[in-house]
Amino acid sequence: MEHLKLDKTKFTLAIDFNPNGTLEMEGSSYPESAAEFFAPVYDWLNRFVSEVGTNITLNLRFDYLNTSSVKCVLNILEILESYQENSDSKIVINWYSEEDDEDIFETGEELAEDSSLNFNFISY
């Protein structure tokens, strides 16, 4: 399976999804169309969970997400939750936030609250 790499722009995240199971998203996200930006990400992830099926570490290092992007992140977490329920693979979410960035930390806490996924909170 191919490596999915999208460079960070002013409006979109850097995406680095490695078929070895290390997936990374980083930056700020307020694209004109979140649906269009995240479509190849969903596509890759859906193929990954059905074709590769290994443990996943998702590293998330966000600065800012608009509401549409938060919904897309929720959709990604839903794909992973469903994968976790239907496989023996282990999924870890590493949620990074800057030491003084309470908003990003709180966003992670909110996302983790109703999720069955294992969140690690890492400040830097």
Binding site: Y64, V70, D103, E106, T107
Partner: peptide, 18 residues
Amino acid sequence: LKENEKLTKLGDIMDRKL
């Protein structure tokens, strides 16, 4: 409904950050 509640809350957090 649950997701909408979450998105509203997270939208508020991001508004605060902005």
